[in-house]
């Protein structure tokens, strides 16, 4: 773990218990995020990416069947902390989460400014005035006029509410912000301007981000690194340049080929089949069923092969060029 590493996640597991059986939503996920770096967790719906966010934030539902793995935040072993200490010392202040559709979860009867200032007043016991002043700063940062502080959520458009939620996450200056589908419900132009705000914040404040999305195009707007998730596992983790230009895993390649592009004339190609059920994922490679390159070995579960510095792919095709090692 190098000095620049902010978040180190090793073999993270989160299984749910449901009436139909155990859902292996996060099934051995490892990655790290450096300071000032943005990691995009890319995956289709139901691949477990939102559960990953919940596991990192320890926002676990009641029906957890199994959790496991190690999470280090800087030099702090977050796994060793009690829930209470984690909530006090890590949540909001060091690690913040913007949940999916959280713009609709604002309290409708409390002014937006108060809601944004809330974490400071609760966690840091700041005075109302001081907290509101800080909230105003963050509002400017995310591109909302400060006179919106005194408004109620219903007086704000969807884009503005999403910015307010973002401001709430940023207000306590966390080192790492997890964004779960922050723009998926928004219009193209609003999306673009929120992504602009995120880029600016990343550049100016050096905040690290984990952006969770299903949208390949959006992911490229912020990503320094990309982690592609499939059926509860990461299949490839790579620098953005590498990932978008020459992905290694067959799923990455096919996903990239399936994206309709605006400025290119190449016709997108669909990926046949469907992801496996998370109840009983296949014992071997989880992508094998849809993979055109599958061969005998795919019946075994592939480890993550290191293909270069900080580039790993979980595919037997790379067994020769890479060394099997830590999971991606």
């Amino acid at each position: 773990m190098s000095a620049a590493t902010l978040l180190h996640v090793e073999d993270l597991v989160l299984h749910y218990r449901t009436r139909q059986g155990t859902v292996r939503a996060v099934d051995g996920v490892s990655f790290d995020v450096r300071r000032g770096e943005a990691l995009v967790v890319l995956g289709e719906s139901g691949c477990g990416k939102s559960s990953l966010a919940k596991a990192l934030m320890r926002l676990l539902p009641r029906n957890v069947a199994r959790t496991g793995g190690r999470v280090r935040l800087g030099d702090l072993d977050a796994t060793a902390l009690s829930d209470e200490r984690f909530r006090r010392e890590v949540q909001w202040t060091r690690l913040a989460l913007v949940m999916q559709a959280s713009m609709n979860a604002l309290n409708p009867v409390v002014r937006v400014g108060e809601q944004v200032a809330e974490p400071l007043r609760v966690q840091r016991r700041w005075s109302r005035r001081r907290a509101l002043a800080r909230a105003a700063e963050v509002f400017e940062l995310v591109g909302v006029a400060t006179d919106f502080l005194a408004r109620y959520p219903f007086e704000l458009s969807g884009g503005m509410r999403q910015r307010a939620v973002l401001a709430m996450a940023l207000v306590a200056e966390p080192e790492l912000v997890i964004l779960d589908e922050p723009t998926s419900a928004l219009d193209v132009l609003t999306q673009a301007s929120i992504m602009n705000a995120l880029k600016r914040i990343k550049r100016e404040l050096g905040t690290s981000f984990i952006l969770i999305t299903h949208d390949v195009a959006t992911s490229s707007e912020l990503a320094d690194r990309v982690a592609l998730m499939y059926a509860g596992q990461l299949v490839e983790v790579a620098d953005a340049g590498r990932f978008f230009a020459a992905p290694a895993h067959p799923y990455s390649q096919m996903l990239m080929a399936s994206v309709p592009r605006l400025h290119q004339r190449a016709r997108p190609e669909a990926i046949p089949g469907q992801p496996p059920s998370l109840f009983e994922p296949p014992a071997g490679c989880r992508y094998a069923e849809r993979c055109p390159y599958r061969f005998a070995r795919c019946a075994e579960h592939p480890p993550a092969f290191a293909l270069g510095e900080r580039h790993r792919a979980r595919c037997w095709l790379h067994a020769d060029d890479g060394e099997a090692g830590g999971a991606p």
Binding site: M160, V188, T190, E221, A223, F244
Partner: peptide, 21 residues
């Protein structure tokens, strides 16, 4: 405002008209 997937996107700001629909 629409990006095609490209690592370069992360480093440049997009031109977006001010305001909302």
């Amino acid at each position: 405002a629409i990006a095609d997937p490209d690592a370069a996107n992360a480093t440049r700001l997009r031109e977006v008209p001010a305001g909302e629909p």
